[in-house]
């Protein structure tokens, strides 16, 4: 129980820190931040009065103290009021995010789970056949592929499979003439559009799991209990799965949530390249249009999502691995 309380406390503290970071970043600039932002906006051409109003609303009244601004900021977060996007005026920021969220959720969810499964299975095989040709091929290959720049792979796939071969659409989440709905036609179309972005992530995604799983399992296969299992004459399958892999997979569960932050960063690039209507593209759009309220809310949403995933992974690990619970108690 102590373990779960500790993890929850860590979650609450990180949540508070993320929320505060989100408050601090725009105010790091010298002088009145709203003035500075408006100044930057006017430097880029005529400014919509709505933009200035949105910036003022986001940053609070400039003459009040920082503390009362912080209080107002926390208050509006609790009320779920993240301000109004001025590129998509008069839609509130939350509306834009809820439109984009399912796309990223599906893209990241599917690729992350697939990458984890593929990587764990390959890594387990590599460890079982340690120093075989398969092992060195997979280990070296994943070291190499894992270091490839994410977005360059996306650009290559876009060039080769969309432009040259014409097998897949080059942009968007669905065809223009297909409207989002709960229908097979839309689902098929969305999957068809999602294959290339997903593939770009899936090329590099398993690499980390392969290496992690292989190294853990090489270790667990060398432990005394595995040797005993072999000596008892248990089947090869049983030794590999129940004694080697079962223990080796545990550190990867924590890694699963930690990797989520990296994957989400990668989706910003991938979504921008494929013009995929998810959170990452929305973030870049907000940055490009200097839509600060939208940008702030997106950063907060993405961060909270990753923190929640980490809390869940910690809980899962606590259920799966009694040693973790013991350690904290």
């Amino acid at each position: 129980m102590r373990y779960f309380l500790r993890r929850t406390a860590f979650f609450v503290i990180t949540l508070w820190a993320a929320v505060t970071l989100n408050f601090v970043i725009p105010r790091l600039q010298p002088g009145d931040p709203a003035e500075a932002i408006v100044g930057q906006l006017t430097g880029q051409g005529p400014v919509d009065p709505d933009q200035i109003r949105a910036v003022r609303l986001m940053l609070g009244v400039p003459d009040t103290s920082l503390l009362s601004q912080y209080w107002d900021y926390l208050g509006s977060l609790v009320r779920g009021d993240f301000g109004i996007s001025y590129t998509y005026f008069p839609y509130p920021v939350t509306h834009m995010i809820s439109e984009a969220l399912p796309w990223t959720l599906v893209l990241v969810g599917v690729t992350q789970v697939l990458g984890f499964l593929i990587g764990t299975v390959l890594g387990a095989f590599a460890a079982w056949r340690r120093n075989s040709r398969f092992d060195s091929f997979v280990t070296l290959g994943s070291q190499f592929v894992g270091s490839l720049p994410f977005f360059w792979i996306a650009l290559l796939l876009l060039y080769l499979l969309a432009f040259l071969a014409g097998w897949f659409p080059d942009s968007g989440g669905h065809a223009v003439d297909v409207t989002p709905s709960w229908s097979w036609a839309f689902a098929g179309d969305a999957i068809y559009h999602g294959i290339l972005p997903a593939l770009s992530i899936l090329v590099t995604a398993p690499a980390g799991w392969i290496i992690g799983m292989r190294n853990n399992m090489v270790q667990s296969l060398g432990e005394d209990y595995t040797r005993l299992a072999r000596a008892k004459g248990l089947s090869v399958r049983r030794v590999a799965l129940a004694y080697g892999a079962r223990v080796a997979i545990l550190p990867n569960v924590t890694g699963f949530a930690l990797a989520l932050g990296g994957i989400l960063g990668g989706t910003v690039l991938v979504e921008t390249i494929f013009d995929y209507p998810g959170l990452g593209r929305l973030l870049m759009e907000a940055v490009g249009a200097r839509d600060y309220p939208l940008m702030q809310a997106l950063f907060l949403f993405i961060t909270i999502g990753v923190l929640l995933a980490n809390l869940l992974a910690d809980f899962l690990l606590g259920v799966l691995d009694p040693r973790v619970r013991k350690e904290a108690a």
Partner: peptide, 24 residues
Amino acid sequence: SGLTNLALVIPVLPLMITLAAYAP
């Protein structure tokens, strides 16, 4: 350690983008 774990879980690229977007 808390600070380190915090920096570890916060998604880096969105943070980088936000920081860079505000820089004058």
